[in-house]
Simulated scan of single mutants.
Amino acid sequence: MGGAALTMVSASALAAPRSAVGTGLEAEAIRAIGVETARTAYEGRPALRALALENAPGLDRLVVLDTPAFGDGVIEAWISGAPSATASATARGFVGVAFRVRDEDRLEAIYLRPTNGRADDQLRRNHAVQYISHPDHTWERLRAEAPAKYETYVDLVPGRWTHVRIVVKGSKAQLHVDGAEQPTLIVGDLKHGADAKGAVALWIGPGTLAHFSGARVTS
């Protein structure tokens, strides 16, 4: 994947919203879009608390990391999501990672639906992990045009820390969950193409209270 350019955003760094954060290389900024952020401690980790704002414009709620343009590489983070106190009955605690982000509304993302992980209904369980490519390929379109291709099951618990590792190369992305050697989800046709580049961001869905810690980007 070329020369190793590493950006490490520590747990304490991610807990410093809209200000300088230490990456191990230099001070970097994070920028919240449609999200209210705060520094906190959560489940034994210093973390960034991110609450999705109601009625936020656009498809995506993001915390954008000020790292070099990302094309191919590896993104790792500890993430946790649960429905917020004011969430609707359809909220699932949506939380994940976006990559190759451009213009705030052009991105690829892989996210979790934590309340689906141990649902009593098998169909809901099968929707625990989701790939999207905005603005054109929403989850609704992908599910309608290619059922089961861009989503799958993984064991999840709302509010619990989950480690995600996303490996991106060309038009392919793989998601590894909680240290698993084998990928949980394989996307072989990233919709923005093999040469797309952009920012890396933490992704939050509507009606979600999320926490993030220990983000690491290698390219």
Rank of each mutant, 00 (worst) to 15 (best):
M1E: 10
L6F: 07
T7C: 14
V9Q: 03
A11L: 05
S12L: 11
A13E: 12
A15G: 15
P17V: 13
P17W: 14
P17K: 10
G22A: 13
L25V: 15
L25K: 07
E26P: 09
A29V: 08
I30M: 11
R31D: 08
A32H: 12
E36R: 09
R39A: 15
A41H: 07
A41D: 15
E43A: 15
E43S: 01
L48T: 05
L51M: 03
A52P: 15
L53A: 12
L53I: 08
L53V: 09
E54F: 04
A56S: 12
G58T: 11
R61W: 06
D66Y: 12
P68I: 09
G73I: 01
I75K: 01
S80Q: 05
S80A: 15
S80V: 05
S80C: 08
S80R: 02
G81W: 02
A82V: 07
S84C: 14
A87Y: 11
S88Q: 08
V95E: 02
G96Y: 02
V97F: 12
A98T: 04
A98V: 12
F99Q: 03
R100C: 03
D103F: 07
E104T: 10
D105H: 14
A109V: 08
A109L: 10
I110M: 05
I110Q: 00
Y111F: 15
R113W: 01
L123I: 02
V129W: 00
Q130T: 04
I132N: 02
A146S: 12
A146M: 07
P147W: 00
Y150P: 06
E151P: 06
D155V: 02
L156G: 00
V157Y: 04
G159F: 07
V167S: 00
L175A: 12
V177K: 01
A180V: 00
L185W: 06
I186H: 00
K191H: 11
A194R: 15
A194E: 14
D195R: 12
A196M: 10
G205I: 04
L209K: 00
F212V: 11
A215S: 14
A215T: 14
A215R: 10
